[in-house]
């Protein structure tokens, strides 16, 4: 259950340093350190002057019902979603901040997840265009409890013109239909990185490695470095 990417630029433990901790603390609500803050677009965590902000737009795709909304909710610190499956209507954007150190310089990553429902996107053409246009990466959600979500990824890969594509893998406790080995072989064949969703995002121990890997991967691609492990 390891992601298949190695960090190229990011210092994986920087968030534990006093400087890192200072920013990470601001990501949580002041009166409840288990709830992530939802920043508006006019604000961001306060950072030292001169800190570079790296904005990354990530378009999220996946088969209808594969768990795109759940994935993004988990990643943005709101793990509970509407019980039962409800098709998402329209476009939903969630911003998440993550601080990191790259080549000894502090960077504040602003990850913008753009998500939309599959059926609604078919009904209104503008939706998928808006989600993928000028995005820095595309994430396809693969649910290990649903084989067809991988088939969807496969078919989507052919039509996607985007060069930076990755898989977000949702784990499941029961009835695993896509096994570890199969997934890694698939990813290797397609030269795709995959990231397992952290099981508990409220715990930094799980959240930090996920965001470190994700930011590192997208950042590396923007700097034209292909990770060795692929």
């Amino acid at each position: 259950m390891e992601n298949n990417t190695a960090l190229k630029y990011l210092n994986p433990d920087w968030y534990k340093t006093p400087e890192g901790e200072l920013i990470v603390q601001q990501l949580y609500c002041p009166n409840n350190n288990k709830v992530l803050k939802h920043f508006g677009i006019l604000e961001h965590p306060s950072i030292a002057p001169g800190t570079r902000e790296v904005v990354l737009k990530i378009g999220v795709l996946g088969k209808a019902g594969s768990g795109k909304t759940k994935t993004i909710s988990v990643l943005s610190g709101k793990p509970t979603v509407f019980p039962g499956y409800i098709e998402t209507i329209g476009i939903h954007v969630k911003n998440v901040y993550w601080p990191a150190q790259i080549q000894a310089k502090t960077c504040l990553f602003k990850l913008q997840f753009w998500e939309s429902g599959e059926s609604c996107s078919k009904r209104y053409n503008y939706i998928s265009t808006a989600c993928l246009e000028k995005s820095d990466a595309v994430a396809i959600v693969v649910n290990r409890a649903d084989r067809t979500s991988l088939d969807y990824a496969d078919s989507k890969l052919d039509s996607l013109i985007h060069s930076v594509v990755m898989l977000f893998v949702m784990d499941t406790d029961h009835d695993v239909q896509i096994h570890d080995q199969e997934l890694s072989q698939y990813a290797k064949r397609k030269r795709l990185p995959f990231f397992y969703l952290p099981p508990h995002t409220l715990d930094l121990k799980y959240l930090a490695p996920f965001y470190n890997s994700l930011c590192d991967f997208v950042f590396s691609n923007q700097h034209k470095v292909i990770p060795d492990s692929l």
């Binding site: 939802h38 920043f39 508006g40 677009i41 909710s73 943005s76 709101k78 209507i89 329209g90 476009i91 939903h92 954007v93 969630k94 911003n95 913008q112 609604c120 009904r123 209104y124 939706i127 808006a130």
Partner: peptide
């Protein structure tokens, strides 16, 4: 909980 939405 969304930063931005665009819903028909």
């Amino acid at each position: 909980y969304d930063t931005g939405i665009d819903i028909p």
